[in-house]
Structure formats: C-alpha cells, structure tokens
C-alpha cells in the first residue's frame, strides 16, 4: 500500500527558465526505505523540498504529491506546517548550521516538541532527555545546556534524529545525513537509522550519493540524473543487475574505488567485494 505517491512532479526555475526536475513519479510504501541516489546536483534534495513545500518562492512546483488523500502541493502553508512537524519529518544534511546559533539545544528541542506534541515544558524536557539517551548520547542534561557550536557535527546529527524518533512521524525524509560527517560518525548515524527502521516501523526516504550506505539501508532505490528518474525498483535487483547505463556507471565506479582501497590496505592482493 503506498503511503506517499508522487506523480509527474516538476520544478521550474522561473528566474532562469531552467527546469530542475522533470516529470518525476515514484511511490513510497509503508514500512519500506526508499533511497534516492544520484550525483550532486541531480535534484535529490530539491525533490525532498518540493514534497514538503519548502522550495524558494521563484521555483514553480507542478504535479501531484499524494499523502493520505491530500495533494500536498495544493495545501496552504498552515496545513503544510502541521504536516512537516508531525507527519513527514525531515533530517537535514548540514547539522552544524541547522540549529539556531543563539539558542541552546535544550530550548530548541523543547520548542519543537511542544509545537508538535501536546505537552508542557517539564514533560518536553523529560522527553528530550529520553530522546537523547536513545541515540546513545550520554550526559543528556549537559548536552541540553550547550549551544550548537559547542557540539560536533555527528552529535548534532544524532540530536536531529532523536527529535524525529520521539515525534514518531509517518514518513522520515533524511537528506544526505552522513555526507558532512567523518567515517566514524557516519557509521554511528547509519546504525541509528537502521535501528529506526527496524524498531519503529517507519517509512523512510533516504537521500544519498554513497552507495555503500544505500546498500545497507535500502529496500527500494530511485536513481536520479539531471532531475529525471533513471531507474526505479527494488534495491537488491538494481544494485546487482542495473538496467540503465548510468546506474551501471555509478556502481562500477564505487566497486572500483573499494577494490583499489582493499588492494592498498592488504598490500597488493585484490579482494573482490560481494555486491
């Protein structure tokens, strides 16, 4: 059963006349993780923003985004605000600049929780502490008192995930959450997402250009190039037997990279990875 259906989505830049997304169609099914893959600039983030109605005023969005019987593109700002906060939550790419620099993490978490869930300040604070603990942040009370610039990118990313975890939306959209992180933090964050999928039974759209993460998390894959859908289907099928030349190219490049890495790590012997 499809939870979110996108039909013929297109985004035009009215300032330059350029079309950023061409006639994109796909569906997100319940309890599935759809990964959107592609190079930088292929329109992945733009798709997420278009779904949530967060594109810049000079971008014209056409098509249908059907969610629980509503076409999200036609909804007013007030309705979309409720959808964004409670039903479809997004995790941004650059965690370090995502938070208000002049406000503590605690304040920002509490204001988010109070806005989207019905509770008072004390309850929100307790929930925030529980949330931080569930993403393996120790000493949550200390973290709540800190300002964004005092925490690392990985930690801030986990704070964002924790907020989403306690709000329990229907759909989570994660926009390249691991791109800005170093490899250790990447691993931790990816594990968090795996946990989210397994435990909370949530549906996810995970945007990434890192094929290894995609391989680990995805149930379905959508490959994009230059704002168009190039391939769409189940992850296991696409990653092992890609039909489009571009997907083949992406996978080959990735395999090539891992091979040479393995070669240099093991001192000359190439070990072929199982894809």
């Amino acid at each position: 059963m499809s939870l979110l259906e996108i039909k013929n989505l297109s985004v035009n830049n009215l300032r330059t006349g350029q079309q950023i997304i061409h006639d994109l169609s796909f569906s997100l099914h319940e309890n599935r993780c759809l990964c959107i893959v592609g190079e930088s600039g292929s329109g992945k983030s733009m798709t997420a923003k278009a779904i949530l109605g967060l594109t810049s005023p000079w971008l014209q969005v056409n098509g249908e985004v059907l969610f629980k019987g509503m076409n999200l593109i036609e909804q007013s700002n007030a309705t979309m605000r409720k959808v964004r906060g409670q039903k479809i939550c997004m995790i941004l790419q650059d965690a370090m600049t995502a938070f208000d620099p002049l406000s503590t993490i605690g304040k920002q978490m509490i204001e988010t929780l109070r806005e989207n869930l019905v509770m008072n300040k004390t309850e929100a604070k307790e929930l925030a502490i529980t949330a931080l603990q569930s993403v393996q942040i120790y000493e949550p009370e200390q973290v709540l008192k800190k300002y964004p610039h005092q925490l690392s990118g990985g930690m801030l990313q986990r704070v964002m995930i924790s907020i989403v975890m306690v709000i329990k939306p229907d759909i989570i959209i994660a926009d390249e959450p691991t791109t800005a992180l170093d490899s250790i933090n990447q691993r931790e964050v990816v594990e968090q997402f795996k946990k989210l999928l397994a435990v909370n039974h949530v549906s996810m759209i995970f945007i990434s250009h890192d094929l290894s993460v995609v391989q680990y998390l995805a149930d379905d894959v959508l490959v994009m190039k230059d704002g168009k859908c190039v391939e769409l289907g189940e992850a296991s099928k696409i990653l092992s037997t890609p039909s489009h030349s571009f997907t083949k190219f992406l996978i080959d490049t990735r395999v090539g990279l891992s091979q040479s890495f393995q070669q240099s790590m093991s001192g000359g012997e190439a070990i072929v990875l199982e894809s």
């Binding site: 964004r84 409670q86 941004l92 938070f99 988010t112 806005e115 989207n116």
Partner: peptide, 15 residues
Amino acid sequence: NENFVLYARVRGLKE
C-alpha cells in the same frame, strides 16, 4: 536564507 531557517520550517515551528 540560512540553513537554520530551513530547519525551523522543517520542524514545523510557527512563522
């Protein structure tokens, strides 16, 4: 146009 404004919108905060 900063990122924190986008994230505030994403979180569903009032305008």
